[in-house]
């Protein structure tokens, strides 16, 4: 049982928000994953010399297995090149340009059968974002970047001050507080498949939860249940038994609930993670064990287009 699709995580945010700083941290971290990062340019990419295996005009290869490439003039064509790489990387991160709509890039992961949605992380400069969001020229695009995020990361401040305004723009996104939670841990988690590593990375800033049982689900009922999961549970993955004898591979990242078919497992194996400030295991247990029976199996039996209901596209 394996998910071979390439997870794509988009890192958005306005100019100077701190996207590259985050990418530098992710690239340099010890995680044992072959990350591929597409950036607009190497301008601010700063890799420790010890970690650099080779540097070419448009490709940096790291000793930890990560690769960083410039995307050239055409992001999507560069994405196609990544998919054609052999072996494929474990996780693709794309740095959106400062004015890009990250959703338009992330949509490629929803469209392309060989890819999987790995979330949108929007980096926000806590010092100037309120000025920016109200700017008559660029404000709408900056707000759009915040509105489509699954995870908001406030840089340069502790994030407390910005939190209410960010939540007003995007009430659903999980806010990562940088002083307590290393965001790169969570970001890597977006890319991991169940096969690659069962348990989420351990850090006290994050709460992990595991779910089990032998209950069986249809697509609609399972999707509805996952949609009603406790706030802050930003990543859920694993296997659930299907009510038709075929199993469900579950990949939840932020607002995206992705269910695909797989061999029927003996029992449910779900793992999930969220910031400790937002998530506690008791709520998760009661959600999974108690709320599930309340879901009306037939309440949502419109076979067409149901999935779109579970993803609220940015507006």
């Amino acid at each position: 049982m394996t998910d071979t699709r390439l997870p794509l995580t988009v890192i958005g945010g306005y100019l100077g928000a701190g996207k590259t700083t985050l990418i530098n941290r992710v690239l340099s971290a010890t995680h044992g994953r072959r990350l591929m990062v597409l950036v607009n340019d190497f301008g601010a990419i700063n890799i420790d010399a010890d970690l650099l295996e080779s540097a070419e005009e448009d490709t940096l290869t790291l000793t930890n297995g990560c690769v960083c490439c410039t995307m050239g003039g055409d992001l999507f064509m560069a994405m196609a090149d990544v998919l054609d790489r052999n072996p494929r990387p474990d996780h693709l991160l794309i740095e959106a340009s400062g004015v890009a709509d990250p959703q338009k890039i992330a949509n490629a992961a929803l469209a392309e059968p060989d890819m999987r949605y790995g979330g949108i992380v929007t980096v926000v400069d806590g010092r100037n974002f309120s000025t920016l969001t109200q700017d008559s020229l660029i404000g709408p695009q900056v707000r759009g970047q915040i509105a489509c995020a699954d995870l908001l990361y406030v840089s340069k401040t502790d994030g407390q001050e910005a939190a209410p305004a960010l939540q007003a723009i995007n009430p659903e996104a999980v806010l990562a507080d940088p002083p307590t939670a290393p965001i790169e841990t969570l970001l890597q988690e977006f890319g991991q498949t169940f096969e690659a590593r069962g348990k989420p990375a351990s850090h006290p800033a994050y709460t992990h939860w595991t779910g089990g049982g032998v209950r069986m689900f249809g697509r609609d009922r399972l999707a509805k249940l996952l949609q009603q999961r406790p706030d802050g549970l930003v990543r859920v993955k694993g296997f659930v038994r299907g009510d038709d004898g075929i199993g469900w591979l579950v990949q939840v990242v932020g607002r995206d609930i992705d269910l695909s078919r797989t061999a029927q497992p003996d029992k449910t194996q779900l793992v999930a993670i969220g910031p400790s400030a937002r998530v506690n295991r008791e709520d998760c247990d009661s959600w999974w064990n108690e709320k599930a029976p309340d879901v009306q199996p037939d309440a949502l039996c419109h076979p067409s287009a149901t999935d779109t209901k579970f993803r609220e596209m940015d507006t």
Partner: peptide, 14 residues
């Protein structure tokens, strides 16, 4: 492209 009624992509018009 595997596009059908289950496709969840914004740009796949239904």
């Amino acid at each position: 492209a595997g596009y059908d009624s289950d496709s969840r992509v914004e740009g796949v018009v239904k």
